[in-house]
Design a protein around this nucleic acid. Sequence first.
DNA 1: CTTGTTGTGGTTTGTCTC
DNA 2: GAGACAAACCACAACAAG
Length: 205
Amino acid sequence: MSSRPNNKREVPMKKLMLCADKVIDLTRNVNHIRTNQKVKLQISGNLRDSVLVRIEPLNSPNSAKNNEALVKNGTAFFSNLRFTKSSGRGNKIDLKIYFDSNPDRILVCKKFIKITRDGPRDRKKKMIPDWNSIGSAENEAASPAVDENSAKWPYEKYVSDVAEFGYYLEYYNKVTGPLFNEQQLKQIVQIWFLTIFLFFLSPFK
DNA sequence: CTTGTTGTGGTTTGTCTC
DNA sequence: GAGACAAACCACAACAAG
């Protein structure tokens, strides 16, 4: 068994925003965790202080721990949320959010996160060695080990940032009125798609 | 020392391609 | 249907914190 790094892998905080009766996930790039792994979750929006917020997976109730929080300064913060059941191969859980207010409110966040026993893992090394590369420093330099996650990261983060910008734009358009006219919005969308298309052609993807 | 968390190898299962 | 590959589960070792 190889030695293990000291730095623990902490899941980035999940952020949900309530917009009317919709739940907007601002952190869709955080989409896979291990069962019983600690997750921080922040739910913000038009919430009254001191309201109790309880969350649980829609399909497997009672499989969440530390799943209650009080609203403070308009935000409910779950600092040690854990899910004990996996969501199944390729599936994500739907999150039910229960507000203990008067009247009670229940909202659902679709496809909140994927939960497996292992969580996200690097691809396994092949058991059959590549004899051409053994003991060859030249080969190692020519084809350095690529961390799949870090290679994928810039694109996923970019898409996530664009999505986040879109959500905020929609929110502010509702709250403060349109920030852009139709022609300007069309131009923005065209630039998004052009940039993503160019990214696919670039050597960085 | 005990308990909880995290990383990893072995194995099984699902999906895709031919 | 067979084979390849990815994604998942299981078990266990290594580490950190109390």
